[in-house]
Design a protein around this nucleic acid. Structure first.
Length: 132
RNA sequence: CCGGCAAGACGUUGUGAACGCCUUGCCGGAUGGUGGGGGAGGGGAGGAACUUCCGAACUCCAUACGGCAAGGCGCCGGUCCAAAGUCCCCCCAUUGUUUCCUUGGGGAAAAAAUGGGAGGGACCAUAGGCCGGGGGUUCAGGGCCACAUCCCUGAGCCACGGAAAGUGCAACAGAAAGUAUACCGCCGGGGGCCGUAAGGCCUCAGGUAAGGGUGAAAAGGUGCGGUAAGAGCGCACCGUCCCCCCCCAAUUUUUCCGCACGAAAAAGAGGGGGGGGAGCAUUGCAAACCCCGCCCGGAGCAAGGCCAAACAUGCGUUAAGGACUGCCCGUCCCUCGCCCGAAAGGGUGGAAGCGCAGAGUGGGCCGCACAAGAUAAAUGAUCCUCCAGGCGUCGCAAGGCGCUGGACAGAAUUCGGGGUACAGUCCGUGAUC
RNA sequence: GGGCAAGUGGCGGAACUGGUAGACGCGCAGGUCUCAAAAACCUGUGAUCUCACGGUCGUGAGGGUUCGAUUCCCUCCUUGCCCA
């Protein structure tokens, strides 16, 4: 398997998992982002995880509000966050399922700022991979 | 040089490097089948993909034909029209049939069905774009010293059938706002008072639409006659409306001809002239109701079709039922599992399984793409390079070097038109030399 | 993706078929009452120019029809709703 891949299985894809992470995940936020995280074996949310989550691998879900702007602005923000996640996903604990939601008026304009913002919110939620 | 006003084209470039994503068929391996994964390839946003203002295809709704209602459109002619689609023709392939030829194989022809074809033709514009013509209206200038009407020239605007079919509305102001009207004024007459008289003042019932003032709008204009005063009341000219004839008219249609040129005939928004008639009856608004002519069934790909999953509930079945009660709860009996017990009995727990139907819920496949195409929804990021632009610097200059830097905006069934947004470039337009 | 609806002072919300825009309520400002406040009551309150009288502009934006548009028509902008 390639090192920096981001295939379809690495995303949250169905409504059940989205609902589960929203209701059971640990919510944390910084100035730009809001994140719901669900890591099996770490917090109590992970313990109740159904099979879909328990079978391993990190997964990302993105929610981009219409308040961000038109379709061009929304797509750009989504692609930046996805690219940042792709390049630095091994900083994340294995099995983590996260949903990232940029706040309205979020000040991410390029790839560097996106990576910094992701790193900051992972550190705050204490789901960073300590071995790296 | 100016300008983004009118018409059009492009919308930073490159089969560039390495990372990543979506999709497609291929390869090899594996398999009962399916899915996932692997390899090397192909393809991967726009002129507006935006908007949803029009229209078409397509699908379903009782095939929806006719009428009514509702809704829409509205000077005349030309032109632009669709890789969508429907119909027709043509070509190719396949299939079976018939007929003919021939030595059993086969060949030829015919009509048919199915599929394909960047083939040809027809259809398709209802506030569409453009071009030309006509009309209306507003403003400016002129005819004209002034006013009104009219005419001419120029510019702007106009969704531009009908206001003499009917209904409705026209605030405020004003006497009166649509069968006109009598406030002031004007006119004669009756009565009263004053005055020598001429006449004046008050008053009553009338006449009048010439003058005043109001208003967005006041009911044809000018002149002469006429009258108590006036009035299209009468007449002349002008304006308006109706009918007939002639001429002009962008262009269109038909016929003649083998075709073209040409000729003839007809139509033609309207315009002009002549004749006759009407005394004016006819203010504006139909993006008010409406009338006339034409168009139009409705909803939309979240249309619509198919597939399996799971649950409330109902029915059937099995030992899983019955009684009390209007119903629920509850109680009792029966039945089943488990525990205690030698047994009788006691305690405790359960209301299930299977099949069918199934509101609602959340999925998948088709619809859906003749090389973009998904369903948490792909087209990104880094570097190099190209093209303009800006800044700095070197240079007399051409130019070199470094830094910076790129508008509006993102497909979800397809196609056409309109509208709106937009960095910069090309082309062309305009003015000047 | 497709189909609809609505925009009026700081806020909610009127203005009936075109005819004086801002009724009414909340809020805000000033006053009365009170030692002070609250409540209550009274007055004012769209913008701008003006000492005042008064003028001009104002119904999301821009056009059109009309003597006259919040109202009728067209094009944009914003917001909201519905459809498996």
């Amino acid at each position: 398997m390639k090192k920096f891949s981001f295939t379809r299985n690495a995303r949250l894809r169905c409504r059940k998992i989205f609902d589960f992470v929203f209701s059971e995940g640990e919510k944390s936020s910084t100035r730009d982002l809001v994140m719901w995280a669900c890591v099996p074996g770490l917090n109590k949310a992970g313990a109740k995880a159904p099979g879909l989550i328990a079978n391993g691998g990190r997964r990302l879900g993105l929610v981009i509000s219409k308040k961000t702007g038109g379709a061009v602005q929304r797509n750009r923000l989504k692609r930046l966050l996805r690219e940042a996640y792709r390049l630095s996903k091994y900083d994340l604990l294995d099995g983590a399922h996260i949903i990232v939601y940029p706040k309205a008026g979020c000040a991410i304009n390029n790839l560097l700022e996106a990576r910094k913002a992701l790193s900051a919110i992972w550190a705050r939620a204490k789901i960073k991979n300590a071995e790296r």
